[in-house]
Amino acid sequence: MASTIRVRATATGDTTEVQALIQHPMDSGFVKDAQGQIIPPHFIQQLTFECNGKAVFVADWGTAVSKDPYVKFSFKGGNKGDDLKISWIDNKGASDTTTAKIS
């Protein structure tokens, strides 16, 4: 099954830049469908990035994060070839995890 997480991590010197794109509806609970029924909230609550087993960045998200969320950040201490583990969990308890190599 294809992962919902697409990630690119590039190391330049001692800084690693991480860009992640996740496929998720991020329904806010304010939008109505064609029948006038409210689409219940369905959104990622927490997204965690771990490098070599150590958490480097944690995102707590509300419903105001755009559909198919994108996030970019940088951290120090990552090297080319290191493992970067990305996982998310949403308000319905669904989750996904992927591991990328820093390039």
């Binding site: 806010s28 944690v58 995102a59 707590d60 105001a64 994060v65 996030v71």
Partner: peptide
Amino acid sequence: NPNALAASYQILPGTLPSVANRLK
């Protein structure tokens, strides 16, 4: 917005204080 808080990021030691994202 209906709920003001959109996103909150924990910047752990070693992570640079710079974040980009997309909001509604």
